[in-house]
Design a protein around this nucleic acid. Structure first.
Length: 854
RNA sequence: GCGGGCGUGGCGGAAUUGGUAGACGCGCCAGAUUUAGGAUCUGGUGGAGAAAUCCGUGGGGGUUCGAGUCCCUUCGCCCGCACCA
């Protein structure tokens, strides 16, 4: 018997699939379509185990749906703009384009060696002008439609590098590379008007029934719609009014102060003539945008000495503070504080000696004696001390108070969202240029369509801080398309989330002259099954949902939602190893001695195993997929990825696990390449007669087909693998001789091969050929379970005494209760328990269980 | 703080609507085969017990003829969000 050569066989089938363009598809209205998409990778250099897991899942679904008769679109591309390329340029003096394209080439080869059923003719890369030129056109259309605009926002500014930093690049208030103290700076930025769709995006979440609840909840919270009221307070001694947003206008009678955000226009204005306030604002700015800093910060305020008039109580005035806990970006950037019924306000009031006036009395408390201690009361109750609101419940009070505000012209009911417009400007080189020109005379002028794409210059340097586009000698200098005068190109590039907000639609057709070929997009969209990491639960998925709607409204496509089904996979984890000096050690460097002690192959130091954690370079607990592909082949790697762990949970990568998968590959090989009992020819006719052994084999077989089909349908890959292995075990024990059995063996072997095909496509294809098929397994239809075999004619019924198992009985299916009961009571163990007495009660659940109560 | 998830053998994990807990795999034990094996095959494998039996799904309580599954309570771990007015 020849040993199975995975490397050779896998290369062979990859070649054949590619030569025959097996996975290249076109719009075919005679078949139902199915669009499977995994989140496309950032070309960081090499694929990692997370990619292997993600793309294996997608491929299993794609191959399964394909076998079920769907016209399956399964494309792949590269999310190839982004910061790491610029960092590499800075650190290794490689041009981002070169670095990126080389990485793409390596990773494409790695993905191909996984044997994915991808239509490679649709490959795209977002950093190439043939992709981003369409994006620039979209941007111009969005400008026209007022879906993109220029605005201002606060950013993390690194004064040494002259650049904007992402939140994760700010470490303890300092730039990650320069170490300089990061400043908050107000900068002109390009925005997408996602807030225009806030309500639509929120409401539509409900209909995304094939999305994980967790992701739906996260998006709901992110958008965070809250109903409340805008309240306008007259500022004493001034003509203007202070606007605040509140969800609790019913507690206005309990107000004891107002507070402004440090960034509030009024705060800034007052600071000009108040050095104390100016200093306080600087203090607040120092906190930065980092969450941990904000978290530790104690509530602090500064008394502006201004007061506002209470809208409902003549003569009543409230002091205005500037407070570090009020966010400019939320609501109106100002609040009124009701310490009795808000924890933060209470903390603030205690600190600054402000009044605490309860106005909501809990249902079980006495309004005359109810007092607020250290804890604010935020629950429902009856309004008290509130004049015209007294005696109302909270919802009614809110309504009544809002009506009153409207009547006296001091406010109105309003809906507020946490969701803010999407700031998409990046002061960086390696991104899609924003196609506008700044002209002194004409203002912001869109680049004419005929001049697209605005391409990135290749001759840039990364030796200076700041945006290379900005210091390029000539690139930004152009004539104004409108008046012809010298003008400047926009040097901001777009956030890479823009690139990934429409790539799924672009896969439908790579037509060169149009971004989205409407007929192709109408055929394929939406994506039926999208698969990726949960880390994109909010931003990427929300932006893509917004972008799809924006494209819809600009006539690019006709769907609302990009992803009809979403699956978020778990992470790939591995044990961690540290040597006696505390240094991390790579798993493949750890040698396990006979006594179980571990040592580092290179240093010879002894090594301790730590808990299993997400694979990461910093902890060195990584296994290179290429090593696995080389050693065991793609099929074994893919099989292990699908076995054991449910796909939504973390998977623990272990040597033993991959070995087990590899053993199964070889076991199947032995069973099929050199079977211990004959397998009938393909052309052999079904026997006229069967026996019970054969029938029972066929029953297991059909039940397995049904189970695996259901499992794959529901992303229960680990169970699907278990079921196939069970069938394999049955097949291995099935050695009866004779033509009827040989025939059944043929069916069983073919079924095993077909069922395992989505997980292990190469060896399955090889088996299919060995079994005499001329056509490809990839083109073979999925097996169907025959209903006749799905029900057993005898059933095993559990016999319990007071719920405890005492034995089992074999009965014909659907036997009548009386005979089941009689058989059960006749059991020795039951006789012993009943001791000859009549049982108090006997419960018979048909075909399942008999419970005897004594 | 708020929200969500998870706790089942030595390990990863199975278990339709409440109905035989531990499928499948790993590991381990015994045997067979082999020059050898970290290959392969056979059998065994939740714990205690000679057995009958008893105990077992993080802990405690409850509902039920019957609970991993439902309810209450408690502990532990993980994830997400967070001064959201």
């Amino acid at each position: 018997m020849t040993r199975y050569n995975a490397k050779e066989t896998e290369a062979k089938w990859q070649r054949i699939w590619s030569e025959h363009c097996v996975f290249e598809v076109t719009e075919d209205t005679s078949k139902p379509k199915y669009y499977v998409l995994e989140m496309f990778p950032y070309p960081s250099g090499r694929i990692h185990m997370g990619h292997v897991r993600n793309y294996t899942m997608g491929d299993v679904v794609a191959r399964f749906k394909r076998a079920q008769g769907f016209n399956v679109l399964h494309p792949m591309g590269w999310d190839s703009f982004g910061l790491p390329a610029e960092n590499a340029a800075f650190e290794n003096k490689v041009h981002p384009a070169k670095w990126t394209r080389e990485n793409v080439a390596v990773m494409r080869g790695q993905l191909k060696s996984m044997g994915l059923s991808i239509d490679w003719s649709r490959e795209l890369s977002t950093c190439e002008p043939d992709y981003y030129k369409h994006q620039q056109k979209m941007f111009l259309d969005f400008l026209d439609a007022d879906l993109a605009y220029r605005g201002e926002s606060w950013v993390n500014w690194d004064p040494v590098e002259n650049t904007v930093l992402a939140n994760e690049q700010v470490i303890d208030g300092r730039g990650w590379r320069s170490g300089a103290e990061v400043e908050k700076k107000l900068l002109h930025q390009w925005f997408f008007r996602i807030t225009k769709y806030a309500d639509e995006l929120l409401v539509a979440i409900e209909a995304l029934d094939r999305w994980p609840d967790k992701v739906r909840l996260m998006q709901t919270n992110w958008i965070n719609r809250s109903e409340g009221a805008r309240v306008l307070f007259d500022i004493v001694g001034r003509k203007d009014r202070l606007e605040v947003f509140t969800t609790r206008p019913d507690t206005l009678f309990g107000a004891s102060f107002c507070a402004l955000s440090p960034n509030h226009p009024l705060s800034l204005e007052l600071a000009e003539n108040d050095p104390g306030l100016a200093a306080f604002l600087v203090e607040c700015a120092k906190l930065g945008t980092s969450e941990s800093a904000l978290e530790k910060a104690e509530k602090q305020g500064y008394d502006t000495r201004l007061t506002v008039a209470h809208p409902f109580q003549d003569g009543q005035e409230l002091p205005i503070y500037v407070a570090n806990f009020v966010l400019m970006e939320y609501g109106a950037g100002a609040i009124f504080g009701c310490p009795a019924h808000d924890a933060r306000d209470l903390e603030f009031a205690h600190k600054y000696g402000l009044g605490v006036f309860p106005v909501v009395c809990p249902p079980d408390a006495d309004p005359k004696t109810f007092e607020i201690g250290d804890e604010a009361y935020v629950g429902d109750g009856t309004l008290i001390n509130s004049e015209f609101l007294d005696g109302l419940d909270v919802p009614t009070g809110i309504r009544r108070a809002t009506e009153k505000l409207v009547t006296i012209g001091a406010g109105e009911g309003t809906v507020n969202y946490r969701l803010r417009d999407w700031g998409a400007s990046r002061q960086r080189y390696w991104g899609c240029p924003v196609p506008v020109i700044h002209c002194a005379a004409c203002g912001i002028v869109p680049v004419p369509e005929k001049d697209l794409p605005v391409s990135l210059p290749e001759d840039v340097t990364f030796d200076k801080p700041g945006n290379p586009l900005d210091h390029h000698p000539s690139w930004k200098h152009v004539d104004c398309p409108s008046c012809g005068a010298p003008a400047m190109r926009e040097t901001d590039t777009l956030d890479t989330f823009v690139d990934s907000s429409w790539y799924f639609a672009r896969f439908c057709s790579l037509a060169p002259d149009t971004a989205l070929d409407r007929s192709a997009v109408d055929y394929w969209m939406p994506v039926d099954q999208y698969i990726g990491g949960v880390e994109h639960a909010v931003l990427h998925l929300l932006y893509a949902r917004f972008f799809t709607r924006a494209l819809r409204d600009c006539g690019y496509l006709g769907v609302d939602e990009p992803f009809a089904g979403l699956f978020t996979q778990g992470m790939v984890c591995h044990e961690t190893y540290r040597d006696e000096n505390g240094g991390w050690v790579f798993p493949d460097q750890v040698v396990i001695g006979g006594d179980g002690t571990k040592t580092d192959r290179e240093s010879g130091r002894s090594v301790q195993a730590g808990r299993s954690e997400k694979m990461s370079k910093s902890r060195r607990n990584v296994v290179d997929p290429e090593l696995i592909l080389d050693t065991y082949g793609a099929d074994a790697g893919r099989l292990f990825m699908m076995s054991d762990s449910p796909p939504e949970r973390d998977l623990e990568w272990t040597e033993a696990g991959i070995e087990g998968a590899w053993r199964y590959v070889n076991r199947l090989w032995r069973m099929i390449a050199s079977p211990s009992a004959p397998i009938a020819e393909r052309t052999a006719e079904a026997p006229a007669a069967s026996d019970s052994e054969r029938e029972s084999m066929l029953r297991v077989l059909h039940q397995t087909v049904a189970a695996v089909t259901a499992d794959l349908e529901q992303f229960r890959f680990n169970r699907a693998v278990a079921h196939v292995r069970e069938l394999t075990n049955h097949l291995a024990e099935y050695n009866a001789s004779g033509p009827a059995h040989d025939h059944a063996r043929r069916i069983a072997v073919e079924t095993v091969v077909q069922l395992i095909g989505p997980m292990m496509p190469h060896i399955a294809e090889e088996f299919w050929q060995m079994l005499g098929h001329d056509e490809l397994l990839a083109d073979a239809p999925w097996p169907t379970a025959s209903p006749a075999y799905l029900v057993d004619d005898t059933v095993t019924i559990a016999v319990q005494i007071k719920g405890k198992l005492r034995g089992t009985i074999e009965m014909p299916r659907d036997a009548d209760k009386a005979s089941v009961e009689k058989t059960a009571l006749a059991l020795d163990s039951v006789q012993r328990a009943t001791n000859g007495q009549t049982p108090k009660r006997v419960i018979v659940v048909p075909n399942k269980v008999v419970n005897v109560v004594v």
